[in-house]
């Protein structure tokens, strides 16, 4: 009988794969979009990526349990997309991104990873990204940031989507932002509507800023 010291991160393997990816992404800005299902991540990407798609080399990795519906929607806008079907898994892992990149190639200015719709599990899996962008829609309740604080803790920016529905739902924008800042004061916040177009140019400018920051790093 004896004790063996281990002192290792349980997700060490995912971290080391993510580190290899991060190394290969030295000229590519990588944004990991996370949210609950149905918050409008794909809709935002459809509207925003077309604003600058001709200026950059970009691609989208779509993560869903099943179907190629989201990748088809992105491809329809003229942006390259690669669908990963996770089957039973509730999140993307670094190895999924590695497989996608074998198809897409690393010669990109921007890679968007649209994670599986889930505000819990994807928070623990590093994909080699520069930032996690959290999307929350106004139909979901303004207390989501404190109900799912782990994700808000690791996110860099936060989009409140479907603001066109505000007159019809019980959603207090200021309260929601207050909660989010309480969990993570560094969060950059955007308000958007894919119906009215509110905030979409700001999101595009934010992404272009991130691309420039990566190039100059």
């Amino acid at each position: 009988m004896g004790m063996v010291d281990v002192k290792a991160k349980i997700l060490e393997k995912n971290y080391s794969k993510a580190a290899v990816l991060r190394d290969k992404f030295k000229n590519t800005c990588v944004l990991n979009f996370v949210s609950s299902p149905g918050s409008g991540k794909t809709s935002i990407l459809e509207k925003v990526l077309v604003m600058f798609k001709d200026k950059y080399k970009l691609a989208v990795v779509e993560g869903d349990q099943q179907t190629t519906n989201d990748a088809d929607r992105i491809e329809a806008t003229g942006v390259t997309a690669y669908q990963v079907n996770t089957g039973r898994a509730c999140h993307l892992e670094a190895t999924d991104v590695e497989k996608a990149m074998a198809e897409l190639g690393y010669d990109l200015d921007l890679l968007i990873i649209e994670n599986v719709g889930n505000l819990v599990c994807p928070s623990q899996f590093d994909l080699g990204e520069d930032a996690k962008v959290i999307v929350l829609s106004t139909t979901e309740g303004d207390d989501k940031p404190i109900k799912y604080p782990v994700m808000f803790r690791v996110g860099s920016s936060f989009i409140i989507n479907k603001t066109d529905l505000l007159p019809y739902v019980e959603f207090d924008v200021d309260k929601c932002i207050g909660y989010a800042k309480g969990v993570n004061p560094e969060l950059e916040v955007f308000q958007a509507s894919c119906k009215t177009g509110e905030g979409l140019e700001e999101i595009a400018a934010y992404i272009e800023g991130m691309i420039a920051k990566k190039k100059n790093a």
Binding site: G2, M3, V4, V6, K7, A8, K9, Q124, K181
Partner: peptide, 20 residues
């Protein structure tokens, strides 16, 4: 103030194992 630096709470680690 919101500027709280986390000391613990983010652990996801294996510390040791007991073997025969």
């Amino acid at each position: 103030a919101f500027e709280v630096e986390l000391l613990t709470g983010e652990e996801l680690t294996i510390t040791e194992i007991e073997v025969d």
